[in-house]
Amino acid sequence: MNISLNGEERIVRPGATVNDLVEELGVPTRGVAVALDHVIVPRSAWARTVVKVGARVDVVTAMQGG
């Protein structure tokens, strides 16, 4: 099924969780936060939050900035 991960279309298996997507990005989980359809998903809920078709997932972290 299709979702949007950090602005890019991705095909993921049905039943994929937020945790699966963060792992797919291959990023350290420290200093990272996730929004699912513009709503924060707390880290404690990543493993049980299933992403639905057409979902928009943003995984963000701190970058250099003024």
Binding site: G31, V32, V60, T61, G65
Partner: peptide
């Protein structure tokens, strides 16, 4: 020190937080 929040690139953001941790500054 200030930081911006941005989408993580594939593979990670490259250790900025480690640098700032070493400097013992608040974010």
């Amino acid at each position: 020190v200030t930081v911006a929040m941005r989408r993580v690139p594939q593979g990670g953001a490259g250790g900025l937080l480690d640098v700032l941790d070493r400097c013992e500054v608040a974010l």
